[in-house]
Every structure is written in C-alpha cells, then in structure tokens.
C-alpha cells in the first residue's frame, strides 16, 4: 500500500471516529426512548418495544402541550426580538460614524465578560418590583440585546458593500428603508445563522428561567427535564423520550435553515 493510500485511509478512519462521536449521543437518545429504564441502565443499545409506554408515561406526568408552548413561545418571540434589536444595533455600529462609537462598543464587549450569576439577583429584584416574576416577559426581556449577536452582525456588516447604501440613498430610500429593503435581503444567510444560534440558546436557556419562573404551568421543557432527571428513581426511558421531543424543534430549524447557515458561515455576500 502506498503512503498516499494509507494516508487517505487514515483520514477516513479519523473522520469516521469523529462522526461517530458526534452522532452517537443522538443515536443513544433515540434508542433509549424505546427502551425501559432498567434496560437503559444495563446499557442496552438496540431498539426495544417500550416506546409507547414511555410516551404514555411522559404525557401523563408532564403537561406536554402547555410546557412545549412555554418553551416555544419564549424561544420564538425571544429569537425574533433578539434578531431585530441586535441586528439593528450591529448594523448601526458599523454603518454610522460617531465619536463615541468605539468606546461604547468596547464597553459592550467588556459587559460580555460579566458572568450571569453576578447579575441574577439584581435582575430578579428588578422584575420582582415590576411585578413581572413568573411571566414570559421576565424570561425574554434580558436576552433581547445579545451582545454576542450585536458583535456578530457588526462583523458581518463589514462585508456588506458600502456602495449599495450609497446607491440606495441616491435612489431616495430613507435609512430605515435601506435597512429593510437592501440590507435585510442581502444578509439573509447571516440572519439564518443567527436564528439558529439564538433559537438554540433561548430554547435551551436554563438558569434564568429557573430563577424567574415559579409555577409548573409556566416552566419550560428544559426545566422540566432537569427536574425529572433528579428524581430518586428516574425513569430513563421516559426521560429520553422527553429529550427526543425537546431536541426536535432545534433540529427542525437547523435543517430548514442549514443551507443558508453554511452560506452565512462562509461569508458569501455579493
């Protein structure tokens, strides 16, 4: 065997291992959802017949429609708001000159380094005084001005051709119209990538919803699943079934947007 062939084989082997490691957790999750808890603990890796039982247990124990609605509402509304506000901010930072621009931006980046746990208590006090504890507003509001997304959009806007804005100004568009009719369509892949990132973050958000949501009927699926895992005798089959359900929305969004996502990552803006 020549060295070139050997190297090729080696590369494939390594990639296969990496692929396996990435995919295995999903595989395990799906298999587990069809098995009983006892089987799972024993390490069974083949499909079992307990899928319907697990489903039944899950739906009896968890008010699934309500819980998923909570998660969905928070994730969707949160994502839409974050995209609007943070992309506008990123666009603004890059497009408009101002003496204080860089200083404000540097301050924002600095704020990124503050751990959430440090802000948790004051945040809670704020919402408590506003009588907004245990509401969707309280969960969504702190997330809409995502500094990371602002940064992301500012970077992406650097690749946006300035002359398009000039041409649009000459064509008579106001700044808002330029943002809506020229910038947005051109930056579609950036928005797609951002949607995936933000949606996943909102859907999986744990700590803040934990603190600010009080009643069972307002909790999100992440909180519920977490509680189920820490029962004294967890029913792993049911748990994994619930996890499969909880993972679906993000998977769906990813597959729908993935073409654009890849474009966005490659930075193909013409």
């Amino acid at each position: 065997m020549t060295w070139a062939v050997f190297r090729r084989a080696l590369v494939y082997v390594l990639l296969s291992i990496a692929a396996f490691v990435s995919v295995f957790p999903f595989f395990w999750m799906i298999i587990g959802a069809t098995n009983t808890s006892a089987d799972i603990i024993r390490g069974k890796t083949s499909i079992g017949g307990a899928l319907l039982t697990n489903a039944a247990t899950f739906f009896t124990q968890v008010d699934a429609p309500r819980i998923f609605f909570n998660s969905a509402f928070i994730a969707i509304v949160g994502t839409v708001l974050t995209l609007i506000i943070s992309s506008l901010a990123g666009y603004g930072f890059e497009m408009f000159r101002s003496r204080f621009r860089e200083r404000i931006f540097a301050l924002l980046l600095l704020l990124l380094s503050i751990p959430f746990a440090a802000m948790m208590v004051p945040l809670f006090v704020m919402f408590s005084q506003a009588k907004l504890v245990n509401t969707y507003v309280a969960v969504i509001a702190p997330t809409v001005a995502s500094i990371f997304i602002i940064f992301y959009f500012r970077q992406a806007t650097k690749a946006f051709p300035r002359e398009l804005r000039d041409a649009a100004r000459i064509d008579g568009l106001s700044e808002w119209q330029i943002f809506l009719y020229v910038y947005l369509p051109v930056m579609r892949s950036t928005y797609a990538a951002a949607t995936i990132i933000v949606f996943m973050a909102n859907w999986n958000n744990y700590l803040w919803p934990l603190i600010v949501l009080q009643t069972a009927d307002n909790k999100t699926i992440t909180l519920i699943l977490s509680a189920l895992t820490s029962a004294y005798t967890p029913d792993y089959g049911m748990l994994l079934f619930g996890t499969v359900l909880a993972t679906l929305p993000t998977l769906v969004i990813f597959f729908v947007l993935q073409r654009r996502f890849v474009e966005g990552m490659l930075g193909a803006v013409k």
Partner: peptide
C-alpha cells in the same frame, strides 16, 4: 439637499447592483 432630490444619478465603480 438629499441625494435623491438633487436630480442626479450615479454609476459606481463596482456597479452597486442590488443582488437580490
């Protein structure tokens, strides 16, 4: 005066066509 109200039209070096 606003560019669109000056009665001018501009052709750019990189054409600046709206790609979408």
């Amino acid at each position: 005066v606003d560019p669109s109200k000056r009665g001018i039209a501009m052709v750019f070096q990189s054409y600046a066509l709206y790609p979408h």
